[in-house]
């Protein structure tokens, strides 16, 4: 019996979210008096694999298979499902990112395992197994009991503190014979930018709305994001107008993010926008209208013109970092 955590890699490396997952899995393992097995699929070297041990994994399974280079949901489900069965995994933890969303539901059906998705806390009880998840796009939370023997959890990003432990994990290299013809998806082309900070990974996000007035006014916003080591985002009308790229659109119909700091500049704070950013740890709003709804969600606010406040903030960051 064990807790299985699927730790995805990005070009052979793990990310903060991988360690959040392992920390979370080890929290559950403690509650169940069990241990954590991490599964990695892809080319990850042993030093990197070992790092998972520092967050509580006691065993790390590493599977390298050239047919699994690309995410094929059906094939991955067969592989992870079989490994879960072999380990007699009671709880399976994945991220609530695109990969987790593609795999967890398939695993749920394959294993007859109920799913708690977008979970942001450790279970409040393991019998009945009760998880806490976001519903109504962040306007409420639900306590959900998973009734099946096996439980699947997808963990909301940036919702669980990484907990380091001293643990020397054992790495086991495993093989898997994939049934021929299982992979039906064919990749025709890939367009990818590398080396860029992804919005979903950024811990600081500076975001602009229609109050930025024109696509030509984005200079200071981008500069502030750069100075803070963060990424830029925008509201939907801004990307619809083509002022900013679509990848930056946050909200219910865009990206859902949970950075440590979200600075909303010239954004009114419509519920559909808030739905994508409400899990941020700290929200700062800059708006000319002191009654803008964004101030109901924000922890800190500045009532003022973005074009005046942004340069002031830039100067303040510069002087704070040179101190």
């Amino acid at each position: 019996m064990s807790v299985l955590v699927y730790t995805e890699n990005w070009e052979g490396k793990f990310k903060k979210l991988s360690y959040e997952l392992v920390s979370y899995a080890s929290g559950i393992a403690k509650m169940l008096d069990s241990s954590v097995t991490a599964l990695s699929i892809g080319d990850v070297d042993d030093a990197e694999l070992k790092s998972l041990g520092s967050y509580g994994a006691s065993k790390i399974l590493s599977l390298k298979n050239e047919h699994l280079r690309m995410l094929d949901s059906q094939a991955y489900t067969v592989v992870i499902g079989d490994i879960a069965k072999k380990l007699d995994a009671r709880v399976i933890v994945l991220s609530n990112n695109n990969t987790g969303k593609a795999l967890a539901p398939r695993l749920s059906v394959k294993l007859g395992a109920g799913i708690g998705s977008g979970v942001s806390k450790l279970p409040s009880s393991t019998d009945p197994f009760t998880v806490y998840k976001r519903v109504y796009s962040g306007n409420a939370f639900a306590n959900v009991v998973i009734k099946s023997d096996i439980k699947i959890i997808t963990l909301a990003q940036n919702s669980f503190e990484i907990v380091g432990t001293v643990n020397s994990a054992e790495i086991e290299h495993i093989g898997y014979d994939l049934e021929a013809g299982l992979i039906k998806t064919e990749v025709r082309d890939i367009h990818k930018q590398t080396g860029q900070l992804l919005l979903t990974d950024a811990e600081i996000v500076v975001s602009g709305g229609r109050g930025m007035k024109s696509p030509d006014n984005w200079g200071p916003l981008v500069e502030l994001a750069g100075l803070l080591g963060g990424a830029t985002a925008c509201s939907r009308p801004v990307s619809d107008e083509g002022w900013r790229p679509h990848e930056e659109h946050t909200g219910q119909t865009g990206k859902i993010i949970a950075p440590n700091l979200y600075i909303a500049v010239g954004i009114s704070g419509a519920t559909q926008h808030i739905a994508g950013v409400s899990s941020s740890k700290c929200i700062v709003a800059i708006n000319t209208d002191k009654d803008a709804p964004i101030f109901e969600t924000a922890r800190y606010g500045i009532v003022g013109d973005a074009m005046k406040v942004l340069p002031g903030l830039i100067e303040a960051v510069k002087s704070a970092t040179t101190d």
């Binding site: 489900t77 593609a102 539901p105 398939r106 998705s117």
Partner: peptide, 20 residues
């Protein structure tokens, strides 16, 4: 906010599925 129904249907039917 489940993000689950689509991929579950695919697994029930053993169809391929593509997310995102």
């Amino acid at each position: 906010n489940g993000s689950t129904v689509g991929s579950m249907i695919a697994e029930f039917l053993q169809y391929p599925s593509v997310s995102a």
